[in-house]
Design a binder for these strands. Structure first.
Lengths: 149, 149
DNA sequence: CTGCATGCAAAACTTTTGCAGAATC
DNA sequence: GATTCTGCAAAAGTTTTGCATGCAG
């Protein structure tokens, strides 16, 4: 074959689930975007390439992919779940959420070492096996601080 | 008066909102529990003392109290929001969520210093004014690690 | 072929909203 | 006494589910 299959293809085969066109398209969308998309947003993007896809399929796929660790489910408290490829979550990045404009920024990972330390402490203190983590800082972004309220 | 009014009473007066019985009861529930209650749970507890309270009132109250910072809205990704008194959030505690049994544990605050450092770095690096933060560690708790799956 | 996956539509949930009546300050 | 708050019921929005059909392996 011409191109190597993406890493998630392997995982899916490994798990014995089918690599259908719909699933491929959903994963492509997640792979191409830098944003944290909601199920609805994903649905509408996929529809451009595959107009017949159903809402239920999007939800079921995201659910499935979340369960086997290919996708990460995020919640910024705005009433809907958002999704991203797990790959991108590796570096335990910090999400900065502006309470004013709602924008989500991400720390590049400069705090990774400190986070790892905390993780280590927590793990041993509570005998808790950390599999992944989410860190949200809520406040006001640079722009909104300037712009008054 | 015999007893000092709780701190949130002041905040509410300050904000010019009324300290109604329903609001008092909701705050009492939040104040007495150690758990992170959902709106529904709060509703049913308050109903024991005040059977006529409506769902909408609970939601509106929690919303209002969240807006003025008396209550913190949390989301553990299980499809419903959970609430706690802001007071308890002060120490930027870490939530440990067991993916297996769903239990939520809390770190006592032993990592506070490291968290503060991270917060400081983030603030200056992005000019982001951090107002509050949430840290979730997902994984397997001690019990579930023992018990096999 | 066989069973897993999909699409559709309806259901299930949580949360929000409109409005008339009630309670607070 | 005016305004804010409440309760009810209905609406809105997201996510889940049942079932017949379709498709991947």
């Amino acid at each position: 074959m011409r191109y190597a299959k993406p890493w998630w293809y392997k995982r899916m085969i490994e798990e014995g689930i089918k690599f259908t066109l719909q699933r491929k398209l959903i994963l492509d969308v997640l792979n191409r975007t830098k944003k944290h998309l909601s199920a609805e947003e994903i649905y509408f993007i996929v529809r451009k390439f595959y107009p017949n896809i159903g809402f239920a399929t999007v939800y079921r796929t995201l659910d499935l992919l979340t369960k086997i660790g290919i996708v990460i489910k995020l919640n910024f408290g705005d009433g809907r779940m958002r999704y991203e490829l797990a790959e991108k979550e590796n570096a335990s990045h910090i999400h900065l959420i502006c309470k004013n404009c709602g924008k989500v920024f991400e720390d590049g990972g400069d705090e990774n070492e400190k986070i790892k330390e905390i993780e280590k402490n927590i793990s041993s203190r509570y005998n808790f096996k950390v599999e992944n983590l989410k860190i949200f800082f809520m406040g006001k972004c640079e722009n909104c601080q300037k712009g008054g309220d």
